[in-house]
């Protein structure tokens, strides 16, 4: 399977193909996709630090 049938079969619900999007401040120039990945890291870190951890029974 090559060409059009393959393209149809691997088509994803969210299509990330096509011209990329970029943001920049001064010398900084990032793809939006990379900014999202960094944001995921930051949000995961904040969530891990702030969300309450289920309490277990203390021993000793």
């Amino acid at each position: 399977m090559t060409g059009a049938p393959l393209a149809a079969a691997v088509a994803a619900p969210v299509n990330l193909n096509g011209p990329g999007h970029y943001v920049g401040w001064g010398i900084f120039h990032f793809s939006v996709a990379n900014v999202v990945m960094v944001a995921v890291i930051v949000l995961a870190l904040i969530a891990a630090l702030l969300l309450p951890f289920p309490k277990g029974r203390d021993r000793g």
Binding site: L45, A48, L49, L51, F53, K55, D58
Partner: peptide
Amino acid sequence: PSYVASWIYVF
């Protein structure tokens, strides 16, 4: 140890 009580440990 009882101080292991944060989601950060899961990473």
